[in-house]
Structure formats: structure tokens, C-alpha cells
Amino acid sequence: MLKELCLFFKDIYQNRKLLVQFSLNDFKSRYAGSMFGIIWAFVNPLVMVCTYSFVFSHLKAAPAQGFPFVLYLITGIVPWFFFSDVLSTATGVFREYSYLVKKVVFNIRILPTAKLLSNLYTHFFFLAVAFVLSIAYGFFPTLQTLQLIYYLFCLAMFLTGLTWITASIQPFFSDISQLIGVVMQALMWTVPVLWSPEIFASSPWIVKILKLNPLYYVISGYRDSFLSQGWFWQHWAQTVYFWVITIALLLVGSLIFKKLKPHFSDVL
């Protein structure tokens, strides 16, 4: 499994130019049939942010650790949008590009990564929005802000392992895409995007359980980076736990892909 994992990263490096071009084409083609094109990639999440911000801040449904709620919301929802978009689009990538799957000469192992890169363009846009909003509220970038690079890498590695598994299973079990959609609706409420851990002050064991979700580490890390609330090594136990889970996903995902790849052409 470790050998397969090393070969994957070698393939990524060797095909880096192809990946960038492929991801650009994928991003453009996603909205090619609509009048406003790629604008929709930014409008939908912005509307969601504005809606959540209005409802929760005005109704005071959730505390925000002393920060303006809109700032607390956007610094947590930006990584969530990226995770959600990559998982939903990369899961069906082998079926979407079945004509490439059937080509022996094309290295289909890079397709989930191409979807990840494709979603980076909107992710960078929302990172910029979060930066502007943070500065507007008086939270200027510091050295701790550079940790965003680390947490983005964490999220990319976690998604790589996860999408290897879901994308490899999808050709044989197409309902997994719908299942993921249902799970995502519930999963969003288990990470600190719309709520703050302080609402569980009387039941700290709930937070300990919620922290078992690796996304908790990444979303909290994004927010800490934007608001300069500490360094990632201060949460060493969570860091170790996250990377154990992520490496396990990468190894298992690599194995599942290797086992199922020879049968893709038969079912697509």
C-alpha cells in the first residue's frame, strides 16, 4: 500500500501541467451551459453565507466566542464549502470521465485530484473574501495566518484519501452520491461552523466526541489562522490524531483503488 501511495504522488508531480490544464477545463465546463457561466460558482455560496449570517446573528441562535458572528461563520464555512464541493464532485469523477477510464494510456488515478484542483479556484476566492472581512473587523494577517497553507494541505490530503474510496466505489454503487448528499446535511452540524464549542460548556464530553471528526481540526485551524488564535502544534493531540486518520485513509483508498480499477471498464 505504501508503494502505491508513493507512486501516486510521483504521478501527481509528473502530470502537474496536465492536472492544472485539466482542472481549468473542468471548472469552466461545469457552468458552460448557463448564461452567467462560472459566476454561479460564487453566487450560490455567497447567498448561503448571507442567509446563515442573517438568521443566526439576528436571532442570536449561537455564540461566536466573542467574535462578530459573520466573521466567525465565514472563517469556518470556507473550508466546509471546499470539502463539500470536492467530495460531491470527485465521487462521480470516474463515471463522468468514463471515456478516459476506458483509455489504457490515461492515468485515471489523477482524476480525483483534478477535481480537487478544480474546486480550488472558488476556494481561493472565498479565502480572499474572508481576508477582506477579517481586515474590515480589525483582524489583520500575522505570522499565524500562514498556517492556512498547512491546513489547506491537511484538507487536501484528507480529501485525497476519502475521494479515492468514494470514487472507486461509485461505479459499482451509484447510490453513494445520494448517500453522501444526505450525510453531508447532517455532518455540517457536527463541526464548528454555525455553532461555537462554548454552547456545550455544561457537557464538555460532547465536544470531545465531536472532535473525533477530522474536519473539526481543519475548520478550527482555518478559524485560528484567520483570527490569529494560536499555532497548530499547541493542539498536538488533535494534530497526531488527524494525521493518523488521514494516512490511514490514504493507504486504504490506495488499496481500494488498486483492487477495483481493473473492473471499472466493465461497469462504466
Rank of each mutant, 00 (worst) to 15 (best):
K10Q: 14
P141S: 08
H58V: 05
F125Q: 06
T190S: 15
S265Q: 06
Q65M: 13
W233I: 13
W80Q: 05
Y72P: 05
G161K: 01
A167L: 03
G181V: 12
L24M: 15
I74P: 02
Y52A: 08
V20P: 02
L152N: 08
L146H: 09
D224A: 15
V129K: 02
F42R: 02
I135W: 08
F8G: 04
S118G: 15
F42P: 00
S134T: 08
G181C: 05
L111I: 02
A130G: 11
W164M: 13
V193I: 15
P112H: 04
L2E: 01
F140H: 07
I176Q: 08
Y222T: 08
L100D: 08
K258N: 12
S254V: 03
I108D: 09
S225N: 01
W243Q: 07
C154N: 13
Y121P: 07
P204M: 04
Y52E: 00
Q170M: 11
I209M: 12
N213F: 04
F27P: 08
L19F: 09
S203I: 07
P197F: 08
I219A: 04
R16S: 14
C154G: 10
G181N: 15
L116N: 06
I149C: 11
T51S: 13
V93M: 04
F83V: 10
H58K: 14
P214G: 02
F42H: 01
Y97P: 00
E96H: 12
W233N: 12
R95E: 03
Y97W: 00
F27R: 07
S174W: 03
Y151E: 13
Q185S: 11
N107H: 03
L255W: 07
L5N: 03
Q147Y: 07
